[in-house]
């Protein structure tokens, strides 16, 4: 094929393959945030996306609401029964919160791993390529959002901020397949069992929680929350419920299948949590105590 691959075409082809490999290598490298030209392009594209997707979302929400109207009666019945319990629960929460603050003051530990400030955001785009679960939200650096912050909906954790630009940020959902995306989690029971949320089972649509000690007693239906030990996410965000427990391949630890509490589909509004306490380890003088506590775990 002499005329198909002329010298000029060959050079263009080889040149672009080199550029392709370099660009891919550059983008999958473990980097803190994207570079400023990328941020600029993201802001410009995000601006257009914002203009287009906001009215579209309004229309979509309208149809959603019309669809929901049909089940209103049943929903109302169900909610009414829940409401009675809620009053009691609410007063308990208020009392416990107050207790907590007072006890913390007593201990002189006013900051907690569980503290965070929520930032409301609207989802403006979802990766149409659908290979990798990324969504774009309409809040960025100007609202104090930084990479690695936890992103959640009202029902639970959905992912973390992958990169930010001035006015938009990209969120990587927990369902995205990324070996580097580990979330330190705990299973709530009398004695908390720690593990790592690591990976997503596409077929069963459940999160995999690994590295649970083999002697841990875990029951189906127990809640899984973030532990706050990873240094990134605040403590106590709901991730989901344990559905199944299997020993791992070497039998040293166990793996739990966790049904996510939040749906990763049809996200519209999310919250980004700015964790107020970023250091897991307290200041020098009280470190000794933490070490002793950790040994006990």
């Amino acid at each position: 094929m002499p005329q198909f691959l002329t010298n000029k075409r060959l050079i263009i082809l080889l040149g672009s393959i080199i550029i392709l490999v370099a660009l891919i290598g550059f983008s999958i490298r473990d980097r803190g945030n994207i570079t400023w030209p990328e941020k600029f392009v993201k802001d410009v594209t995000g601006f257009g996306q914002n203009i287009i997707s906001k009215p579209v979302s309004v229309v979509e929400e309208f149809f959603d609401n019309v669809g929901r109207l049909r089940n209103t009666y049943e929903e109302n019945e169900k909610l009414r029964t829940n409401l009675d319990k809620l009053a009691q629960l609410e007063s308990d929460v208020i009392r416990l919160e107050k207790d907590n603050v007072e006890l913390r003051k007593l201990l002189e530990k006013e900051e907690s791993l569980a503290d965070y400030e929520p930032v409301q955001a609207t989802v403006i785009a979802r990766n149409p390529d659908r290979w990798y679960d990324l969504i774009t939200i309409d809040q960025g650096e100007s609202n104090g959002i930084e990479p690695d912050m936890a992103v959640m909906t009202a029902s639970g954790l959905v992912g973390k901020v992958k990169s930010t630009s001035k006015f938009t940020s990209t969120v990587q959902l927990l369902s995205a397949n990324d070996a580097q995306n580990r979330v330190s989690a705990l299973i709530q029971s009398d004695k908390s069992n720690y593990g790592l949320i690591e990976g997503y089972d596409e077929e069963k649509r459940m999160l995999k929680m690994t590295k649970i000690p083999s002697d841990a007693k875990v029951e189906k239906g127990q809640f899984v929350t973030t532990s706050g030990l990873g240094g990134v996410f605040p403590k106590g965000l709901v991730i989901g419920k344990v559905m199944d427990l299997v020993p791992d391949e070497f039998g040293l630890t166990q793996t739990a299948l966790v049904e996510p509490a939040a749906s990763f589909y049809d996200l519209e509004h999310v919250m980004v949590s700015k964790r107020t306490m970023t250091e897991v380890l307290p200041k020098e003088e009280s470190r000794q105590q933490v070490l002793i506590e950790e040994e006990g775990l």
Binding site: V21, I24, S27, I28, E38, K42, D129, S163, T170
Partner: peptide, 8 residues
Amino acid sequence: LFYTELLG
């Protein structure tokens, strides 16, 4: 840049 973050 905007959607996939896998350049190239």
